[in-house]
Simulated scan of single mutants.
Amino acid sequence: MKLVVVSAGLSVPSSTRLLADRLAKATAGQTSAEVQVIELRELAVEIAHNFTNGFPGRQLSAALDAVTEADGLIVVTPVFSASYSGLFKSFFDVLEKDALAGKPVLIAATGGTARHSLVLEHALRPLFAYLRAVVVPTGVYAASEDWGAEGLDGRIERAAGELAGLMGGVTAKVPRPAKAGEFEVVPFEEQLAALRRGA
């Protein structure tokens, strides 16, 4: 299997790339996928040229092929003006319109404040739904204060598990046991098998 990570971070080092790497590591730990990272800042000139001349350069063409052939995709963008960056959107604008149809995608974003966390729901999820990708239920947003704080690791693991499950063609499992007062869902087949064993 092949997992492709698209990072739209612009700075070096980049919190966007850091989040991308953590998501990739968590997903690869639950699959046998080979990971390839695409840094969009390295393709910015070729993306612009593609808009003006209609042809992708060598590096951009290789990146587009990698995304098209991937079994799963992790996409991470910094938040610009309460949405994804222009570079991020431009890359997916030059992708063939059916390239992501049915492909499992994990969406993620970074920003300076938690106030922009809804960018996942009002910008990224609709974009990938339009591209007919299968977007995992858990998106990951990391604000400046999230690094090193409780909660981020859990969101990363949950989202990675969901993506790994979709890539493997099975339903992702909840990575924690049920707490007191919560219900544990047991598939009917397992309940029936347990009853038969007890009979």
Rank of each mutant, 00 (worst) to 15 (best):
K2L: 00
V4T: 15
V5H: 04
V6R: 05
V6I: 10
V6H: 12
A8R: 02
L10Y: 04
S15H: 10
S15Q: 06
T16K: 05
T16H: 15
L18G: 14
L18S: 13
L18V: 03
A20V: 07
A20P: 12
L23N: 11
A24M: 07
A26P: 14
T27A: 11
G29P: 08
T31D: 07
S32T: 12
A33R: 05
E34A: 15
E34K: 13
V37C: 09
E39C: 09
E42V: 04
A44G: 06
E46Q: 12
E46F: 04
E46H: 08
I47S: 12
N50M: 07
F51R: 00
N53R: 08
G54H: 06
L60T: 08
S61E: 13
A62D: 03
A66L: 01
T68L: 00
G72T: 04
L73M: 02
L73Q: 10
I74A: 15
V76T: 15
V76M: 01
V76N: 07
V79P: 12
S81V: 12
A82M: 09
S83T: 15
S85A: 12
S85V: 05
G86A: 06
L87G: 06
L87T: 11
L87I: 01
F88Y: 14
F88Q: 04
S90K: 03
F91M: 06
F92H: 06
E96D: 15
E96H: 13
A101S: 13
V105G: 09
A108Y: 13
A109L: 10
T110H: 03
T110P: 11
A114P: 10
A114M: 04
H116Y: 08
H116G: 08
H116I: 05
S117L: 15
L120V: 11
E121S: 08
H122K: 06
R125P: 00
R125I: 02
R125H: 10
A129R: 11
Y130A: 09
A133V: 05
V134C: 05
V135I: 13
P137S: 05
P137T: 05
T138Y: 10
S144P: 00
W147G: 06
A149Q: 12
G151Y: 08
L152C: 11
D153Y: 03
R155Y: 07
R155S: 07
I156M: 06
I156Q: 01
A159T: 09
A159K: 00
A159D: 09
A159F: 08
A160T: 05
G161F: 14
G161K: 10
L166C: 07
L166A: 11
M167E: 14
M167V: 12
G168Y: 02
G169T: 04
G169I: 01
V170N: 07
K173P: 00
P175I: 04
K179S: 14
A180C: 01
G181C: 05
G181W: 11
E184M: 03
V185N: 03
E189H: 10
E189V: 09
E189F: 10
E190V: 07
Q191Y: 10
A194F: 02
L195I: 10
L195R: 10
A199N: 06
